[in-house]
Simulated scan of single mutants.
Amino acid sequence: MADSLLALRTSLAEQLAELRGVQPDQLPPALLDISVRRVGDAYYVCPADWEQLRHEEGGAGRPIPYWARPWPSGVALAGHLKDHPPAENLKVLELGCGLALPSVVAARAGAQVLATDGHSDAVAFAAHVLSINEVEGDVALVDWSDHAGHLVDRGPWDLVLAADVLYTSQNVEAALRLFPHLVAPTGTLLLADPNRKGAQGFLAAARAKFELVSDRGPDVTLHLLTPRNG
């Protein structure tokens, strides 16, 4: 186990350094102090001490690494997909994937998955999470709220996954502009949200173009949106 963790750390260091444009020894130590953990029957690799990583990144003037831990919405979305697996070869896009647990579950069901995030570190970790679960899937560095044109060009998508992405008004506005162009006419948008006020604003406006079914929970609500035809 120690040898495999060392190999994983070495591989991550090489990719993270390349994506950041630095030498491996210039990476924050907490970024490479990793552990492999389990949620349900899926594994993920993450920085072992998120608070320390947050401290080191803050000291370097970098953004808070929200991507580096599994949040309840992502876990809930992964659990829903395990209980309701997508069809084999379904074309699936995950936005703001972070550690990509929903993508792992979808890929395990045989879907064709593209996991995307706007943070380069997240993309490197997501690729390794897919690998340690021995599933096939692509990853891409894309900030969907700013630069999602090529996601539209690669679509439309049979299933679009998003967990806790509506945390700012700018994201809500971007989602209202973008999401209708991502989802295939017979496709589905599956949104997991920790009952944020912004999500309610998005859903109210999205009803003009989507049919909505919600499975409300005390901490996370799953919203299934299908395009209105005609």
Rank of each mutant, 00 (worst) to 15 (best):
M1N: 12
D3I: 04
S4R: 15
L5P: 01
S11V: 01
L16T: 04
E18N: 10
E18I: 06
E18R: 15
L19A: 13
G21E: 01
D25R: 05
D25S: 07
A30R: 09
I34N: 02
V39L: 10
D41V: 13
A42D: 08
A42R: 00
W50S: 00
L53R: 11
L53I: 00
E56L: 02
E56C: 00
E57R: 15
G61Y: 03
Y66H: 13
A68V: 01
R69F: 00
A76K: 00
G79M: 04
K82F: 02
K82I: 01
H84Y: 07
H84P: 04
P85I: 08
A87K: 15
A87I: 10
A87M: 13
E88S: 13
E88G: 12
L90A: 15
K91P: 00
L93M: 10
E94H: 05
L95Q: 03
L99K: 09
A100D: 12
V104C: 03
V105C: 07
V105A: 05
G110C: 13
L114I: 09
T116W: 05
D117K: 15
D117A: 15
G118L: 08
H119Q: 11
S120F: 06
A122C: 09
A126I: 05
A127V: 11
N133V: 06
V135A: 08
G137K: 09
D138W: 13
V139S: 05
V142G: 01
D143G: 05
W144L: 07
S145Q: 09
A148Q: 07
H150A: 09
V152C: 06
V152H: 07
G155Y: 07
P156N: 07
L161N: 02
A163P: 11
L166Y: 04
T168F: 10
N171S: 08
V172P: 00
A174T: 01
A174L: 04
A174S: 03
A175R: 01
R177S: 05
R177N: 08
R177D: 09
L178W: 03
F179T: 02
F179D: 00
P180K: 15
A192H: 10
P194C: 03
P194I: 03
A199S: 11
L203W: 04
A205V: 08
A206R: 13
A206E: 07
R207N: 01
A208T: 12
A208G: 12
K209H: 11
F210R: 11
E211Q: 14
R216S: 14
P218H: 10
P218K: 13
P218C: 12
D219K: 15
D219G: 13
H223G: 07
L224G: 13
L225K: 09
T226G: 08
N229H: 12
N229A: 14
G230T: 11
